[in-house]
Amino acid sequence: MTQYLIRRILISIPTLIAISIVIFTILALAPGDPLAEFAMNPAVPPEVRQRIRKSMGLDDPIPVRYVKWASSMLRGDFGYSFRSKSPVIDLIRQRLPTTLYVIGTAYLVSVLIAIPVGVLSAIRQYSIFDNVATTLAFIGFSLPTFVTGILFILLFSVKLGWLPMIYRTTIETEGLAGLWEKIKQALMPIMVLGLFETAALTRYTRAAMLETIHQDYVRTARAKGLSERTVIIRHAMRNALIPVVTIVALSIPGIFTGAVITEQIFRVPGMGSLLISAIRDNDTPVIMAITIIFSALVVLFNLIADILYGVLDPRIKYE
């Protein structure tokens, strides 16, 4: 086991390097311009724009640019944003708490709802509960977040006036009132994102449960006279969790990159909006920093998932 862990961690180093090369190359080859906004501005003539491009090193050969980036990266320096001229790490630090709070809560809520609902749906397959849950899940999944977001705004902000539609990081109110304000403004983004995530996760949980509750060992457990509760939780769910763990492990790194559309609608200053605006502005240092951290998380959580498989199903061997 320890040996397996060490090996996996060692493998992940070249993996990350390979990933960074591929991403860097894609970014370098993809068309776009950090100064596109000034293209039609007579006050910023094309030659000025081209000179600035050059000063950002955008006209250097890709391998040269990569080596430059990688060597400062190894020294722990993520570089400066082309746009705001401030250290990338500061930008990420500013965004991280909000992201974890809003997007993280949404994921947590969706896991907490989806697993019980999915399990119950599977046990009572084709019951009214199951059918309602299925229909709701598919409404949640076929309505993209840009639709649910607007619907929620219309209902809770415009009609009822209960919740603010703009997320503010600058609330200064002290004490409980301030806390309540902070919770209130996060409710809608959490609901919108939570609905979408719950929808998908419920379906996976349900399917996985359906698969296991008809397995022989579950039947055996029942035959032994164990209570239904024990059978479901100890015997069926444990195996059913493998695909669920996979999906959850896949989406946890996603918390870090945030939820672009939801963040955009409610103006939540999370990592997602940072990433997307960096991509639109061709702010390579910011994109690289975020994606590298993200891929490190992907690698890490896949490793965790692989270890969890073994815990859930002892027959799985590490080779």
């Binding site: 990933i19 080859l29 776009g32 790194p253 891929s295 690698v299």
Partner: peptide, 30 residues
């Protein structure tokens, strides 16, 4: 399993990590 698994799994990691927007722009462009 083994080496092939490892290789393909790293490839999956890579695909998960690539931000899709620039990739799409690149594909359009190419």
């Amino acid at each position: 399993g083994g080496f092939l698994d490892s290789l393909l799994m790293r490839m999956t990691d890579m695909f998960i990590s690539i931000p899709s927007l620039p990739l799409l722009l690149l594909i359009t462009y190419l």
